[in-house]
Simulated assay, not measured.
Amino acid sequence: MEILRYAAFTERPDGGNPAGVVLDADGLTSGEMQAVAADLGYAESAFLSRRRPGSATVRYFAPEAEIPFCGHATIATGVALAERDGPGTLALSTSVGVLALTTARVDGRLVASLETVEPWVDTMDPGRRADLLRHLRLAEDDLSADLPVLLSFAGNVHPIVPVRDAGVLRALDYDYDGLRALMAAEGWGATVAVVHRLAPDVFEARNPFPPGGVREDPATGSAAASLGAYLRARGEVVPPGVLTVHQGADVGRPSLITVGIPATGGLTVSGGAVRIAA
């Protein structure tokens, strides 16, 4: 078994979000995949099986649990495959549906793009909202006056929590155990997207990830897609549009995620990835 290591949504090995990638996982059990992910300690790792020309199946594991969908590990997988087989398009079967994964050379580097499943956006129960803010250690006056706290799905359910300014985002220091318990009770298996708007189509984000056993995710493709769905549902962007999300600087791994927002349907998450030495 060859375990590849890539940093996604970056052009440098010490940036972005690291992911493990196993391109031939047909002989691995779920327990063995979980053990590999735990040993790597990355936010997620991707395991491909049933590879055929133009298609494959993928499963994602965080250090402590299997995750339905992961954006950055998918981007890493796309670049890893393109480096071996050349750019192209792959129908990737995941537990949330079939995704189109496309790679191309852009300005001399490989860029991968995935199209998400159909997103949705919903309100949050007031009690759960209060619990969420309590565990994030955020007060009402820490929040954006213009953008509400909502749930958004584009492969994973992400609470979207817009805050009023960069100072609140920088100071984020949440209750890990309390947030972990709340997310488990609610079935929120990915990250909470705490975001701050820099421009109409530019945000910075921090993403606590206790369900996966990770304090903070450096780059979260599924959360960026969910933020794009949130903005589209609220009429905050005019499709077709492009959302840029800066993430990871607060944990020393700056990343850049691009989300294409069409008028309807799934969103397109794009980024590069670079190999990390073992």
Rank of each mutant, 00 (worst) to 15 (best):
E115Q: 14
L182F: 04
E32S: 09
A249D: 15
R170A: 14
T123S: 14
D122A: 15
G213N: 05
P211L: 07
R206V: 01
V58K: 04
G252T: 08
G78K: 02
G97N: 04
G221W: 03
L151I: 02
T29H: 07
P159N: 10
A233K: 00
D175S: 09
V168C: 07
D122W: 01
G155Q: 05
E66K: 02
E66M: 04
L227M: 01
R275E: 15
A273M: 13
D24F: 00
V242P: 01
A185N: 03
A224K: 02
V106N: 00
V238I: 10
A37G: 10
V251I: 14
T77Q: 09
D125F: 09
A278S: 15
A139N: 11
Y176S: 05
M183F: 12
Y174Q: 12
A38Q: 14
A223G: 10
G252H: 09
V168K: 05
D141H: 15
R12Y: 07
P53M: 03
D14K: 01
D122M: 03
A73K: 08
S55W: 00
A65T: 14
A205R: 00
G167S: 14
R129L: 13
I3T: 15
Y42E: 07
V98S: 06
H196Q: 15
T220I: 09
V98K: 01
Q34P: 02
Y230N: 04
D217W: 03
C70H: 10
A112T: 11
L92V: 09
V21C: 12
D122R: 13
A223K: 05
E140A: 15
Y230L: 04
G213I: 02
A278Q: 12
